[in-house]
Design a binder for these strands. Sequence first.
RNA 1: GCGGUCAUAGCUCAGUUGGUUAGAGCACAAGAUUGUGAAUCUUGGGGUCGCGGGUUCGAGUCCCGUUGGCCGCCCCA
Length: 445
Amino acid sequence: MATFQTLPGFREFYPEDFARRNHVFRLWRQTANAFGFAEYDAPVLEPLDLYKAKSGDEIEAQLFSFTDKGGREVALRPEMTPTVCRLVGAKASALKRPIKWFSIAEFYRYERMQKGRGRCFSQFNADIFGEPGPEAEIELIALLVQCLCAFGLTEQDFYVRLSDRNLWFFYLEALGLDEPRIRAMLGAVDRHEKYGDEAFKVYGEQFGALDGGLKEKVLAFLRVKSLAELEQALAGIQPAGEEGSVGPKLVARLAEWKKLLGGLEAMGLARFVEVDLGVVRGLAYYTGFVFEAFDRKGELRALAGGGRYDDLVAKLGGPALPAVGFAIGDMTFALLLEQRGLMPKFVQVPDVYCVIGGEAERLAAFADIHTLRAAGFRVEYPMKELAFGKQFKAAAESGAKLALIYGGDELAKGVVKIRDLGQRTELEVGRAQVAATVREFFSGA
RNA sequence: GCGGUCAUAGCUCAGUUGGUUAGAGCACAAGAUUGUGAAUCUUGGGGUCGCGGGUUCGAGUCCCGUUGGCCGCCCCA
């Protein structure tokens, strides 16, 4: 048993694990490319203040942070958003709009592990900068859906819940709440799914008990599950001619909802998306539409989450720049794929396995082995001398399609015996024809 | 940060009310087998029973602590 243990919550990728991870990353990358997103990366270690500026001082408890040898307060990145805001903010005026970027990167959070959560994990991040309208959300939600569908997942397996912090803000404003009350109420809305009416307790402690009419209106809004219900709920709140200052904002917002849902429907994605105003997402930097993807069975943590954060680039020192983004975590996602039998088994299979008689034959084989490898074939051979019987067994077990046989007889005749391990047929070819014959076999296969 | 639960070979697990040198299957390796296939048989390597302490004539087994895994709470950017 090894003296040294892996640090808690960190992961090791043995070849089969690594193959699975590669598979996931490869399809994410391919999908993002299809949507015209450009890939970037950035440092793993960042100034601690970058995260404090975004999320507040409390965030430090959940970071891998320390003081470096130059006295700098630094942290391993727990997320990509502040970093990408800095990157984009620094060159905003030179970047062609819309700015569509993605990354696949590893992140670190000092947290207790749970199912689907560790201290290190990877995320696919995609963001659009410079587009204030719901066109950006359409593009991103479509990308999110496709990033899951690319693996064979369907609307039976997952769905995206769509909500809107702006809409809530305007609605609560129309109900007469001031900003502190609105923020507290959004906190209650966020917790309502889990705690029921208990969720309003904090609000009550802060601002006094909720009057029944208000609570009823909040609950009604929270239960909105479709555009039609939304229109109905809003119709009730803005009687014609009254509340003139709030009404137009809600009307304009409703138009954006129609645009967003209409766009997604036109893409054929309506079946993946559910209106659900019960989602507002924890941290307060989101400024508009927010969305989260969940498995349909509701057994797993959120698969992905995102939303609009129009103020963040400026807050982190860049120009005012509207932004929307989302992230998919790799851990919960891998669990879902395993659960649905959509994670392939990866075995490394050579194209060709060489069966080699002795030392002289080995040298002859080496010449062909290297030629074939240089041509892109995956070629294996036994590292040490083995009985022929063992070598044929090894060739069969390796999964190779072809065996090249370099025995004393063949060497003497200047030929190589090529055995089709699937068909169990053999033919002899001259040494000079080996590469061409192998190439022909695989181009036909 | 809090709670529950678990820890024996690379993996899955046995191991009796505490009793001699800790076992099996799988996997790995060698041989039977020096020119043809996933088989079979034989053999082998591999363990400070997570770590530390305690009780006892004696601890894998009981007690305490600790580390780590899993699950849940808080949190979830």
